[in-house]
Write a protein that binds this DNA or RNA. Sequence first.
DNA 1: GGGCCCGCAGGG
DNA 2: CCCTGCGGGCCC
Length: 186
Amino acid sequence: MAAERLRAKFLADTALYDPKHLGQDARFGPVERIPVLTTFTDRKECAQRGVHRATVAGISGSSKDGAYSICVSGGYEDDEDNGDKIIYTGTGGQPDPFSFSGSQTGDQSFNHKDNAALKISADTKKPVRVVRGPNKNSPWAPDKGYRYDGLYIVKEAYLAKGQSGYVICRYELERVPGQPRIPRKW
DNA sequence: GGGCCCGCAGGG
DNA sequence: CCCTGCGGGCCC
């Protein structure tokens, strides 16, 4: 099948990413040979290609230099996905990452290293790669797999009160203009 | 389809 | 090293 051959070629052409060979700066921005709207079968592949290097966590980055990438999968009830604008929720305040209820059960804070990283991105205005996972609540999410949707700028980062009444870290992201349009489901 | 549980790659 | 985190597979 042609699609499978194309996929095999893609996997061969995109060298497996070894972060140890890269400087900190190389972790920001676009990834070589991975165009916007490239879709990965799962989080592991997405991590191996260097797009979002965490296999589980939603935020990948350094608490000193800022975030490299985030994954929007709809795991947090206070998220809002409007395509070019995203309201994203920080990490923490949930019982554990594998039994997400969607509801917060505790407070978040910028003391958490991942939340701190994304807050720094709001100051530096360095672009952050955004990956969308399958999310039935968003018309902009892929049906399956994880799609690299290009670069966004973190406009604001602040503490807020979430739906469940707990403190959350809230981030307002805006897509960098001039990138391929994101397909809409409905 | 839901519940359960195992796991890996980062970053500090 | 150690711990954590918006998966995923397997069983039923």
